[in-house]
Structure formats: structure tokens, C-alpha cells
Nucleic acid binder design. Sequence first.
DNA 1: CAAAGCGGAATGGTAGGTTC
DNA 2: GAACCTACCATTCCGCTTTG
Length: 346
Amino acid sequence: MAATIVDVAKLAGVSVATASRVLSGSRYKVSDGVRERVLKAASELQYVPNAHARALVGSGTRTVGVLVHDVTNPYFTQLVGAIQRVAAEMGLLVLIGSSDRNPDRDLSFIHMLYAHRVEALIIAASGVDDLEFAQRMTRSVEMFTQNGRRVVFINRHHVPGDCVLPDNFNGARTLGQLLVRLGHRRIGIISGPERLTATRDRLEGFRRALADAGIPLTPEQIEVGDFSRDGGFRAAQRLMERVPGLTAVAAMNDLMAIGAIAALRERGLVVPRDVSVTGFGDHFFARDVMPPLTTVHVPLEEMGARAMKLALTPAGPEIRVEHIPLEVVERESTAPPPAREREAVG
DNA sequence: CAAAGCGGAATGGTAGGTTC
DNA sequence: GAACCTACCATTCCGCTTTG
């Protein structure tokens, strides 16, 4: 059996109360001699306080919950890494729920994290454009806020609350403007899951950039992917078969962009000589793939750290939104379209 | 007599056991 | 089958003794 504080107190020859004062870092005064005896006994017995018992007496669970869509996706890996670093500095344990974009599982994880009495909840899973679901999410989130616990969102949600908000729209718009400036007129889009607000914001940004340049974007130029490498690969195959003469493919994240590059290579096309490809996210591998990826830098480290810090700050009278501007990183996966295409457009 | 230092016991949520 | 107990374990309020 693991040692309890009763065992430590017995071995040290003091009361349980005194042992607790030494071991819990209480401000209450304990003489140096007694303190030393308690620490020695605890060390001998390899005593570790029972976190559940601590939580039971209301001294907090020292845990925070994070809800993501997919832990294997580098977007969430980097985000959680940053959250984890700030949490560790504060002596907090991070519990992660990964829902695989299943809305019911999202809610179920929120309930489970609440059941574990996490002291704060960060919802890093992207929001969805579904008002009925948003209402259910709002009710779940209120369980936390009504009990004085903090909830912070990353990305746009239809749920009121403090938020770290990357500017997906303008990031995509700037990237779209880059392709237009390079001379591309026939651009295929590999979109993300349609319900996600992140997908919609990025798509709208692109649409605006093209519309401003008078370039049409028809539904057949948009293929839906699932944010995975394989999803990008298949979406690119479908796009190239359906829309002839594409000179650029813009994927809504880096993984799908890499899948698209592989699909193009398989068709004997060279990036960027024949077709330019862009990603979104600027994950750690984006600069190392061949060719290095032109993409939108999303400062995930900063976003995760700011979300965690926001979650550790008491709620204010008004909802706080931390806007995160996004910047395009131009690398070698983009170039002007092939000469004949440029001539054809005039 | 006040302050310092320590101990007793209540407390919390839940599962499993006991009693009527 | 409902109602009540108890154990789990760490923390902390309250109270007690000792010391200066």
C-alpha cells in the first residue's frame, strides 16, 4: 500500500495536521526541527499526496482540460505543446480530449473534463457553423463558468467566451493575393471540413482575394479534404481530373498541401514549374519539404501560450478576444504559371 | 497575556456495506 | 428497497498547551 499522510505523521511522531502543513506548502508556522522530521519521514516512505483526496477537500485538482479535434494533427500537437509548457510552469497537469471532429464526442469530453473538475478548459477544437450545436456547447460551457471555472476558446466559435482568434480570413486573403500577383487565374482549392469556421473563414478570404481581382471561383474548383495528407492527395487527384488547366492549388492546411504535391508528382507535374501549391499553418516541416512550402504562418506556440495564460486569469466583466494576425511566408512551392497559360489569359 | 506551535476533528463526493 | 453508515485521504478551522 502507498504511504498516506497518516503514515508520514506516525513515522515523524507528529499529528496529521502538522505533517500536512509541512507537505502542502502551507503558510502556517512549523518549527524547523519538526519540519525536518516530517520531510525525512515523507522521503523515507516515498510519500506522494493523493490528488483525489486533495481535490476532495476543495484545494483544487491542479488540472486543466484541453479539447482538440485530432492529437495526431501537427496543428493541435504544436498548440497543445505550448499549452502544456505554460501549464507545467504553473504546476498544472493537462488532460487532453481528442474528438476526431465528432460533435457528440466534443460534448462528451467537455462533460468528462468537468467531471474531473479541471480548473480551466481550453477548447482548441475549431468552431462549427451549426447554431443548434453551438447552443448545446454553450450549455456545457456554462457548467464551468457558473462554477467559477475558466473556459477559453481558440478560433471562432458561436459560443460566447474569451477567445484567441487567428485572422484566418486575412491570412487566406493575402495568400490569394499572392497567387493573383504571380499571374494565376485558374486556381483550385482544397478546402477543409465544411462545417468548421476555420475552413469557412479561410475560404472566404480566398474568395475575396480572387473576387477583388475579378477572377471567378466556381464550386467545381473547390474540393473538400479532411485536413490530412491523404485527404489532400485524393482531393488534388479529383481536382486535376475535373478542372483542366489549373495552375495553382491552394490547400487549407500544410498536410493537405503536401498530399497535393505528391498527387501532382504522380501525374508527372512539377511544383512549382507546372502547378503552384500553397498550404496554411506553416508547421515545423513546411520549410523542409520539397519544394519548401509557401504557406500562411499561424503562430501556434504563441496562440497556445496566450490561451493558457488567459485561462489562468480571472474572467473580466467583458469577453476578451485576443486577435492574432497571420502572415504569408513565400517559399519555393509557388511561381508564375507556365508561359503558355499566361499567354492564353493575355 | 499574547504569540507560537501543535493536535483533534470536521469536511468533501462516492462506493460499498449495514440496518430496518 | 430505501435510508443510513463508513471508509477513503489531505486540508484547515478551531482549540489547546507551552514559552517568553
